[in-house]
Protein backbone atom coordinates (compact mmCIF):
# COMPACT_ATOMS: atom_id res chain seq x y z
CA UNK A 1 0.00 0.00 0.00
CA UNK A 2 1.43 3.36 -0.93
CA UNK A 3 2.45 5.90 1.67
CA UNK A 4 0.11 8.88 1.96
CA UNK A 5 0.90 12.20 3.53
CA UNK A 6 -0.41 15.74 3.96
CA UNK A 7 0.91 19.23 4.55
CA UNK A 8 -1.21 21.78 6.42
CA UNK A 9 -1.09 25.37 5.14
CA UNK A 10 -1.81 28.24 7.52
CA UNK A 11 -1.94 31.91 6.53
CA UNK A 12 1.73 32.87 6.68
CA UNK A 13 3.17 29.38 6.11
CA UNK A 14 6.05 29.72 3.65
CA UNK A 15 7.61 26.26 3.57
CA UNK A 16 4.44 24.38 2.65
CA UNK A 17 5.36 24.12 -1.05
CA UNK A 18 8.84 22.86 -0.17
CA UNK A 19 7.32 20.32 2.21
CA UNK A 20 4.91 19.15 -0.52
CA UNK A 21 7.69 18.54 -3.07
CA UNK A 22 9.84 16.95 -0.34
CA UNK A 23 7.07 14.44 0.37
CA UNK A 24 6.18 13.88 -3.30
CA UNK A 25 9.79 13.31 -4.36
CA UNK A 26 10.76 11.08 -1.45
CA UNK A 27 7.63 9.08 -0.63
CA UNK A 28 6.40 8.65 -4.25
CA UNK A 29 2.93 8.43 -2.73
CA UNK A 30 -0.12 10.66 -2.69
CA UNK A 31 0.38 14.04 -0.98
CA UNK A 32 -2.46 16.33 0.07
CA UNK A 33 -2.27 20.02 0.81
CA UNK A 34 -4.83 20.95 3.46
CA UNK A 35 -5.95 24.50 4.28
CA UNK A 36 -6.08 25.17 8.03
CA UNK A 37 -9.81 25.99 7.97
CA UNK A 38 -10.70 22.48 6.78
CA UNK A 39 -12.35 20.38 9.44
CA UNK A 40 -11.01 16.98 8.44
CA UNK A 41 -7.81 15.36 7.28
CA UNK A 42 -7.70 12.64 4.64
CA UNK A 43 -6.57 9.24 5.87
CA UNK A 44 -2.79 9.64 5.72
CA UNK A 45 0.31 8.10 7.31
CA UNK A 46 2.18 11.35 7.92
CA UNK A 47 1.16 14.98 8.45
CA UNK A 48 3.66 17.84 8.23
CA UNK A 49 3.06 21.19 9.93
CA UNK A 50 5.39 23.33 7.81
CA UNK A 51 7.66 26.26 8.58
CA UNK A 52 6.81 29.91 8.12
CA UNK A 53 5.18 32.64 10.13
CA UNK A 54 1.65 31.39 10.67
CA UNK A 55 -0.69 34.27 11.49
CA UNK A 56 2.31 36.61 11.36
CA UNK A 57 3.69 35.11 14.59
CA UNK A 58 1.13 37.31 16.38
CA UNK A 59 0.93 36.90 20.17
CA UNK A 60 3.50 34.03 20.18
CA UNK A 61 4.89 31.92 17.34
CA UNK A 62 2.39 29.16 16.63
CA UNK A 63 -0.19 30.36 19.18
CA UNK A 64 -2.94 31.25 16.70
CA UNK A 65 -2.31 28.26 14.42
CA UNK A 66 -2.61 25.92 17.40
CA UNK A 67 -6.31 26.95 17.61
CA UNK A 68 -7.07 26.42 13.89
CA UNK A 69 -10.00 24.28 12.84
CA UNK A 70 -7.87 21.47 11.38
CA UNK A 71 -5.95 20.99 14.63
CA UNK A 72 -8.69 18.81 16.18
CA UNK A 73 -8.15 16.31 13.39
CA UNK A 74 -4.37 16.67 13.59
CA UNK A 75 -4.60 15.71 17.29
CA UNK A 76 -6.83 12.72 16.43
CA UNK A 77 -4.36 11.70 13.70
CA UNK A 78 -1.51 11.74 16.23
CA UNK A 79 -3.55 10.04 18.95
CA UNK A 80 -4.14 7.19 16.49
CA UNK A 81 -0.39 6.64 16.46
CA UNK A 82 0.26 8.05 12.99
CA UNK A 83 3.25 10.23 12.22
CA UNK A 84 3.19 13.98 12.75
CA UNK A 85 6.20 16.15 11.91
CA UNK A 86 6.42 19.83 12.83
CA UNK A 87 9.25 21.73 11.18
CA UNK A 88 10.33 25.12 12.56
CA UNK A 89 7.02 27.03 12.93
CA UNK A 90 5.42 23.57 12.90
CA UNK A 91 7.48 22.66 15.99
CA UNK A 92 6.33 25.90 17.65
CA UNK A 93 2.71 25.01 16.80
CA UNK A 94 3.12 21.51 18.30
CA UNK A 95 4.35 22.95 21.61
CA UNK A 96 1.52 25.50 21.61
CA UNK A 97 -1.01 22.70 21.05
CA UNK A 98 0.61 20.81 23.92
CA UNK A 99 1.44 17.72 21.84
CA UNK A 100 5.12 18.31 22.59
CA UNK A 101 6.68 19.52 25.83
CA UNK A 102 8.35 22.89 26.36
CA UNK A 103 8.30 26.09 24.36
CA UNK A 104 10.41 27.86 21.74
CA UNK A 105 11.48 31.30 22.87
CA UNK A 106 13.50 34.04 21.21
CA UNK A 107 17.04 33.13 20.13
CA UNK A 108 19.52 34.07 22.81
CA UNK A 109 21.38 36.33 20.35
CA UNK A 110 18.11 38.15 19.41
CA UNK A 111 19.14 37.53 15.81
CA UNK A 112 17.06 35.81 13.19
CA UNK A 113 19.17 32.79 12.26
CA UNK A 114 19.12 31.84 8.59
CA UNK A 115 22.04 29.52 7.92
CA UNK A 116 23.21 25.94 7.68
CA UNK A 117 23.54 24.18 10.97
CA UNK A 118 24.77 20.80 12.10
CA UNK A 119 22.73 18.35 14.12
CA UNK A 120 23.12 14.79 15.27
CA UNK A 121 20.84 12.16 16.61
CA UNK A 122 20.51 11.91 20.38
CA UNK A 123 18.00 9.12 21.00
CA UNK A 124 16.57 6.66 18.52
CA UNK A 125 13.05 6.93 17.11
CA UNK A 126 11.20 6.20 13.87
CA UNK A 127 12.14 9.60 12.42
CA UNK A 128 15.91 9.07 12.75
CA UNK A 129 16.39 5.28 12.86
CA UNK A 130 18.33 5.27 9.56
CA UNK A 131 20.85 7.76 10.90
CA UNK A 132 24.00 6.53 12.64
CA UNK A 133 24.74 7.78 16.17
CA UNK A 134 27.97 9.44 15.05
CA UNK A 135 26.58 10.93 11.84
CA UNK A 136 26.44 14.73 11.54
CA UNK A 137 23.64 16.17 9.40
CA UNK A 138 23.97 19.54 7.67
CA UNK A 139 20.52 21.10 7.49
CA UNK A 140 19.47 24.77 7.25
CA UNK A 141 17.71 26.69 10.00
CA UNK A 142 15.66 29.87 9.58
CA UNK A 143 14.13 31.08 12.81
CA UNK A 144 13.84 33.84 15.37
CA UNK A 145 12.25 31.75 18.12
CA UNK A 146 14.15 28.47 18.16
CA UNK A 147 15.50 28.55 21.67
CA UNK A 148 14.01 25.47 23.32
CA UNK A 149 12.98 26.03 26.92
CA UNK A 150 11.28 23.89 29.55
CA UNK A 151 11.52 23.58 33.34
CA UNK A 152 14.11 21.30 34.94
CA UNK A 153 11.57 18.57 35.70
CA UNK A 154 10.47 18.46 32.04
CA UNK A 155 14.07 18.44 30.85
CA UNK A 156 14.83 15.46 33.09
CA UNK A 157 11.72 13.75 31.73
CA UNK A 158 12.85 14.32 28.12
CA UNK A 159 16.29 12.94 28.97
CA UNK A 160 15.13 9.97 31.05
CA UNK A 161 12.45 8.94 28.57
CA UNK A 162 14.95 9.46 25.70
CA UNK A 163 12.67 11.85 23.83
CA UNK A 164 15.39 14.16 22.50
CA UNK A 165 15.65 13.31 18.80
CA UNK A 166 18.29 15.79 17.58
CA UNK A 167 20.83 18.10 19.16
CA UNK A 168 22.86 20.93 17.65
CA UNK A 169 26.55 20.26 17.21
CA UNK A 170 29.58 21.48 15.35
CA UNK A 171 30.51 20.27 11.88
CA UNK A 172 32.89 17.68 13.27
CA UNK A 173 30.27 16.43 15.71
CA UNK A 174 31.26 17.88 19.07
CA UNK A 175 28.47 19.37 21.14
CA UNK A 176 30.59 22.14 22.68
CA UNK A 177 29.91 25.53 21.06
CA UNK A 178 27.46 23.90 18.67
CA UNK A 179 24.44 25.52 20.28
CA UNK A 180 23.23 28.13 17.81
CA UNK A 181 20.23 29.63 19.58
CA UNK A 182 20.52 29.02 23.32
CA UNK A 183 18.35 25.89 23.43
CA UNK A 184 18.50 23.93 26.68
CA UNK A 185 20.74 20.91 26.32
CA UNK A 186 21.42 21.82 22.63
CA UNK A 187 17.94 20.53 21.78
CA UNK A 188 17.10 20.80 18.07
CA UNK A 189 14.20 18.34 18.04
CA UNK A 190 12.07 16.28 20.42
CA UNK A 191 9.38 13.63 20.21
CA UNK A 192 6.35 12.83 22.32
CA UNK A 193 6.36 9.80 24.59
CA UNK A 194 4.92 7.52 21.88
CA UNK A 195 7.61 8.78 19.48
CA UNK A 196 5.14 9.30 16.63
CA UNK A 197 5.35 13.12 16.83
CA UNK A 198 8.60 14.95 16.05
CA UNK A 199 9.18 18.68 16.27
CA UNK A 200 12.46 20.08 14.94
CA UNK A 201 13.75 23.55 14.17
CA UNK A 202 16.05 22.66 11.21
CA UNK A 203 14.42 22.29 7.77
CA UNK A 204 14.98 18.81 6.25
CA UNK A 205 12.81 19.82 3.26
CA UNK A 206 15.53 22.34 2.35
CA UNK A 207 18.21 19.65 2.25
CA UNK A 208 17.42 16.93 -0.26
CA UNK A 209 17.74 18.21 -3.85
CA UNK A 210 20.84 18.49 -6.09
CA UNK A 211 20.90 22.27 -5.72
CA UNK A 212 20.65 22.13 -1.92
CA UNK A 213 23.74 22.35 0.23
CA UNK A 214 23.27 18.78 1.43
CA UNK A 215 20.87 15.88 1.00
CA UNK A 216 20.83 14.98 4.69
CA UNK A 217 17.16 15.95 5.00
CA UNK A 218 16.23 12.84 3.01
CA UNK A 219 17.18 10.70 5.98
CA UNK A 220 14.09 11.70 7.98
CA UNK A 221 11.69 10.44 5.33
CA UNK A 222 13.89 7.42 4.58
CA UNK A 223 13.77 6.52 8.28
CA UNK A 224 9.98 6.80 8.40
CA UNK A 225 9.62 4.65 5.27
CA UNK A 226 12.12 2.02 6.42
Amino acid sequence: MSFKSAVITFPGSNCDRDALTYLKDLTHGEVFNIWHEESSLPNVDLVILPGGFSFGDYLRSGAMASKSNIIHDVIDHANNGRYLLGICNGFQILTEIGLLKGALIQNKSIKFLGKDCYIKKKFDNKFNCNIKDTEVLQIPVAHNEGNFYCDQETLSYLQNEELIAFEYCRGEGSIDDGNINGSLDNIAGITNKNRNILGMMPHPERAYQDFHVSKDGKKIIESILS
Binding site: L59, A63, K67, T95, E96, G102, A103, I105, Y149, C150
Partner: peptide, 9 residues
Protein backbone atom coordinates in the same frame (compact mmCIF):
# COMPACT_ATOMS: atom_id res chain seq x y z
CA UNK B 1 -4.99 29.93 29.86
CA UNK B 2 -6.49 28.98 26.46
CA UNK B 3 -4.72 31.52 24.27
CA UNK B 4 -3.27 34.73 25.65
CA UNK B 5 -0.60 33.26 27.91
CA UNK B 6 1.74 30.28 27.55
CA UNK B 7 2.19 29.31 31.17
CA UNK B 8 5.30 27.27 30.42
CA UNK B 9 7.20 30.50 29.84
Amino acid sequence: KRLLVNEII
